[in-house]
């Protein structure tokens, strides 16, 4: 019964993509990062929904558009345990956990004030050295960053 009530609260979709289990406090940022992947489609964004696993969670449901897991993986840096679901005929036909890409492009700003990316029109680009604990290297200034250093654009 509880399961059913949940689906009543959230508009179910027939065909599209659902990214679920996004930490509630980064849902809007996740939407901002992913927005370009489905800008013409109807989307529902939920945040602060109760979750057994996370306490509170957020989700993005995109009606009518199938985005690739690679596109969805762009938010793995802020939502490492989020799930990626493809829906067809109202059923989940593929479900997986987001994976951190090897290279994180554009969404981060280099926290090193002397880095060229803060002085020229260079796109940012970070290599993932280690996932846990997170360690990144700026493609340009080659400085190593930890999770606490992250600055979003």
């Amino acid at each position: 019964m509880i399961e059913k009530r949940k689906t009543m609260e959230i508009p179910a979709i027939e065909y599209g993509t659902v990214i679920d289990h996004i930490p509630a406090d980064v849902t809007l940022r996740a939407m901002d990062i992913l927005g370009d992947s489905f800008h013409n489609y109807t989307a529902t964004l939920g945040t602060n929904f109760p979750s057994k696993r996370m306490g509170k969670k957020g989700f993005i449901k995109i009606e009518g558009a199938v985005i690739s897991q690679d596109q969805a993986n762009k938010i793995a840096i802020i939502a490492p345990k989020a799930t990626f679901n493809l829906i067809k005929d109202g059923k989940v036909i593929k479900k997986s956990t987001l994976e951190l890409p090897d290279i994180i492009e554009e969404i981060l700003k280099c926290p090193n004030p002397e880095c060229i990316t803060n002085h020229a029109q260079a796109k940012t680009n970070f290599h993932v050295l280690k996932e846990e604990p997170l360690s990144l290297r700026c493609h340009y200034c080659e400085r190593t960053l930890q999770r606490t250093d992250l600055v979003f654009k």
Partner: peptide, 13 residues
């Protein structure tokens, strides 16, 4: 040669 870090990589691109 450039005072900003990463400038050479940027120039090369």
């Amino acid at each position: 040669r450039h005072p900003k870090e990463g400038a050479a990589r940027y120039v090369a691109e």
